[in-house]
Nucleic acid binder design. Structure first.
Lengths: 321, 321
DNA sequence: AGAACCTAGACAAGACATGGACAAATACAA
DNA sequence: TTGTATTTGTCCATGTCTTGTCTAGGTTCT
């Protein structure tokens, strides 16, 4: 049967949920939230369902529900509960201080340190080391902060190193592949409601760097948006048609390189023209400055940082929710 | 079972799996993980299957599963263990069980049916539906069979549909993004031992379709190889330098489109020339036929199917272990 | 004979369990 | 406002369990 015979130790569960083993046991003891199976030697064995429940409980507590009020809820109710306060009115917008109260017991490295480690992994062409660094970063900084504090700077550094000649094309490719996958995974955190707004993320024709779009997609997904990710270099008609077909509330474009494409302004105008009024065009990336005039003309929302992008998303959601 | 296969001593097994002889015996004694045949004098004789099982067990324990919980699992379960821990960090993967609970009779669908469903998801630009189909496919067919029975045909169909005009570029991009991520996750099932052979997967300059390379990387990873995945369109010097730096035992190239690049033969020759003799060049993909003469000249291993590719990998591993 | 293996048992490091304690934050009563 | 009770995440002390490694004495292989 599809019954998973697999059971996980409390350590694994801790790593996967982000809850400390102490806390998991405390919740069990105080609220009987879950009663995992035991080994012959009385050690806890958790199944996937238990992990899901703990994850949902973590979400619920982080969004303000006292643990005692949600601990005994059936799992369906927890599922429905989580999206209720997705981004909490609490003060966790830019950075995620909540991590300090729930993070792992490991020594937490800061963003810049992690970026250095990541660069080292790239230089030595060690893909799995790079993955490890990124995973560590998620545990240390949280899913959201990683994007702006590690991935963003890292991409920047790789780009610089490439232009300066200290990194070769192979390094850049390897880094892109790993980061892209990492972001793609980060971009589907959990099942969102069908009512969540849809964002189409891509880059227009000629813009070959897709990491920016992937970054934006991950950020939006973590704010509860549904995502249609289309990769790089898509013609205006395709972008518009995808936006129509998926009933997108917004289209996010990332402009990085080249910064002096004579075709691009017209392409941007075409995109805006083809999009329905109900769909907002958001543009970001290192090269937005070069196309500023066009962007202003067509009335696109320009973002110069991930935080700004997040704010724009919130505004959009606000306006129609 | 009357198969007269090579039998290996515990020392050989130890060297190939990276487990100490002590540990192998301890696992056998404590969990009856495997019961190898014995010589007349009672010494253990292991077959290839035993070695595979031990390798899988090692991966499982290294990725956090307590040995006691996985020791008795059937081998298919061990092989399919990969999707259980896609990223190890992703804060939630609880969405999966929720599906199994709603999908009453789990009628396992066949490869072609799954391909159809996947195409439908692509046509309607529903990325998450596509992901669901792929996940279902893994559960139904297993990690390995999915590659040849679903992903391969699906990529083919998408390519056809694109050329025939029934699918637009946007569809192709969306499908690529999802499949690429799926393969990337499939390609990192576990932390493999440092002694495992390394494969570099990429496509040469001008070959823009990377899915083939990703497919090959996933297949190799599932056979226990370490992977350095470099994405598409890499110059010969970069490929060779990456192979050198990562001490690759093989370099896999995927050729799909264009099939008539006049530059490519010379590029392939350069690659072969720059690679050390200890590194085997393996070439596959829909377009290998068009470059057959060059490939034969330079002595590259040509594969026309995933199965063939797997066989080549086994041969390489055999030859040097 | 010497190297490699076998079994049975021992051992230590680390992971885990339990019960209780504590401090910070919050709620509530005086 | 102050003082007390509750909630909750964290931590400690102590004992148990798990697991990789090792020892000892005998057997098999070459």
């Amino acid at each position: 049967m599809s019954e998973r015979l697999l059971r996980h130790s409390i350590k694994t569960v801790s790593e996967r949920t982000g809850l400390s083993p102490h806390l998991i046991r405390a919740w069990e003891r105080r609220y009987e939230t879950i009663q995992p199976q035991r080994t012959d030697g009385n050690q806890r064995l958790y199944c996937e369902k238990d992990i899901e429940r703990l994850t949902l409980l973590k979400r619920a507590t982080e969004s303000g529900h006292p643990i005692r009020t949600v601990a005994r809820l059936p799992i369906e109710e927890l599922r429905g509960l989580a999206p209720q306060l997705p981004a909490g009115d609490r003060s966790m917008m830019g950075t995620q201080p909540s991590q300090s109260s729930s993070g792992g017991p490991r020594s937490t490295r800061t963003g810049p340190e992690l970026v250095e480690s990541a660069l080292q992994a790239i230089t030595s062409m060690n893909a799995s080391a790079l993955e490890s660094v990124l995973e560590e970063a998620v545990l240390s900084l949280g899913q959201v902060a990683v994007l702006s504090h590690v991935i963003g700077p890292l991409v920047q550094r790789v780009g610089d190193g490439w232009q300066a000649g200290t990194l070769k094309v192979g390094h850049e490719h390897l880094a892109s592949a790993v980061i892209r996958t990492f972001l793609a995974n980060a971009a589907r955190p959990f099942a969102v409601h069908a009512s969540a707004p849809m964002l189409v993320a891509t880059t227009p024709s000629g813009q070959v760097h897709e990491i920016g779009a992937a970054l934006v997609a991950a950020a939006a997904a973590n704010k509860g948006w549904r995502i249609t990710y289309l990769g790089p270099s898509l013609p205006a008609e395709e972008i518009a048609s995808a936006a129509l077909q998926s009933h997108a509330r917004a289209v996010a474009l990332s402009l990085v390189h080249p910064a002096d494409d004579p075709q691009l302004p017209e392409e941007l105008r075409r995109i805006q023209r083809l999009l329905p009024d109900s769909t907002t065009l958001i543009v970001g990336g290192a090269a937005v400055g070069s196309y500023e005039r066009t962007l202003r003309q067509i009335g696109a929302r320009v973002c110069r940082s991930l935080n700004e992008f997040s704010a724009v998303l919130d505004g959009l959601r606000q306006g129609s929710n």
